[in-house]
Design a protein around this nucleic acid. Structure first.
Length: 349
DNA sequence: AAAACGTGGGC
DNA sequence: TGCCCAAGTTT
């Protein structure tokens, strides 16, 4: 293995030639013309990118930035509006924390993001990865940015064969030996780009990797198997019932889910909690009709089968739970609820 | 410290 | 088709 600084320089050379264009990225050419990264935009993009692919984030980022160009704009937004815009992107705690964070930065920090790891980590929704990414990309600090890409690249580069997550500290230490003092933000994005395009989870393109001659995993012929992981536990099946009611004037009976927990703060269809058996829990007395099909959806830690009941509700209907949404945009719903909506709508026609 | 927390694309 | 996995954080 060569000197860490030499390797970082080599990767930066590769990055200068191959960096992908992304709406949140300020490239070397931009900086040459005086464009500096906006910490607000960097923060927004990094939160969206947590456990989420670049392809999924792109349009959401552009839309958020157009709707709320500054942290003050976002801080002043209505919760329901922001949750609706986040719908479909997943991990909704991120959207709740996004608003909390925006309100702290806007209201208590005069709209200025902290530029240190400690200051950033104190904010809601910012953990070790995001703090380092903002410090490096927005403020040019030589922090070590460790995400899933970096872990995979380091596991291969140093042939670290202990399984994740136990090997995480070793992977972080390995990454730290390479972090450069110059252009740390570009370097962080370069390693992540490398992991996303060349050092991919399966079938890595080692032949065109800028670090191919330094890679111990490749030399040992085990690169593609790394990083190893502990066996994951199987997902149980949970079942439930969703009640999709439409009033005569076209309004839909929805409820805002509790702040905490699954799909917290998002709109959804009334019904009992999902579990081993489905529990009937109509939100209002009505002629609920069983729809032939059910919704299948898989969350991070369980499979869901959601039976559907539909009903047309009278204008004088007073539900026990939920509220009527006169104009419901399906795009405001989390994906599992939108699936239910799509099936129920055809059943109600 | 293990578990909760979404979704879509790729193979 | 079902599993893997992705620019993680919180409790």
């Amino acid at each position: 293995m060569r000197d860490g600084q030499v390797m970082a320089d080599e990767l930066l050379d590769w990055y200068d030639r191959h960096a992908r264009v992304m709406p949140w990225r300020v490239g070397p050419r931009d900086r040459a013309s005086g464009i500096a990264p906006d910490p607000y935009a960097v923060w927004l993009s990094e939160v969206m990118l947590q456990q989420t692919t670049v392809a999924a984030v792109r349009d959401y980022f552009t839309r958020f930035l157009a709707l709320w160009p500054s942290v003050h704009d976002l801080a002043a937004a209505e919760d329901a509006r922001v949750m609706g815009e986040w719908a479909g992107l997943g991990y909704y705690a991120r959207a709740r924390n996004l608003l909390k964070c925006a309100r702290v930065v806007s209201g208590e920090l005069d709209g200025v993001f902290p530029d240190t790891l400690e200051g950033l980590m104190a904010l809601p929704g910012i953990g070790p990865y995001t703090a380092a990414a903002i410090a490096a990309i927005a403020f040019g600090r030589p922090e070590t940015v460790v995400d899933g890409n970096v872990e995979r690249v380091m596991a291969r580069l140093f042939a670290i064969t202990d399984p994740m997550p136990g090997s995480k500290p070793a992977l972080r230490e390995a990454a730290a030996t390479l972090t450069p003092n110059l252009r740390p933000g570009d370097y962080a994005q370069a390693v992540m780009d490398l992991g996303a395009t060349i050092c991919t989870p399966k079938s890595p393109a080692c032949g065109i990797c800028p670090w191919r001659d330094d890679c111990a995993g490749r030399a040992e012929g085990i690169a593609a198997e790394l990083p190893r992981r502990e066996a994951k536990k199987p997902k149980p099946l949970r079942v439930g019932i969703a009640y999709v009611g439409r009033r005569e004037d076209g309004a839909w009976l929805v409820e805002t889910r509790p702040e905490r927990g699954l799909l917290g703060g998002m709109l959804g269809w009334p019904g009992a909690d999902w579990g081993e058996v489905a529990i009937e829990a109509p939100p209002v007395d009505a002629d609920w009709r069983d729809v032939g099909e059910d919704v299948r959806h898989t969350f991070t830690h369980f499979h869901l089968r959601l039976d559907l009941r539909v009903a047309r509700l009278p204008m004088d209907c007073v539900p026990e739970r939920g509220h009527f949404a006169p104009k419901l945009a399906p795009s405001d719903l989390p994906t599992v609820m939108r699936k239910a909506f799509d099936l129920a709508r055809s059943a109600l026609d």
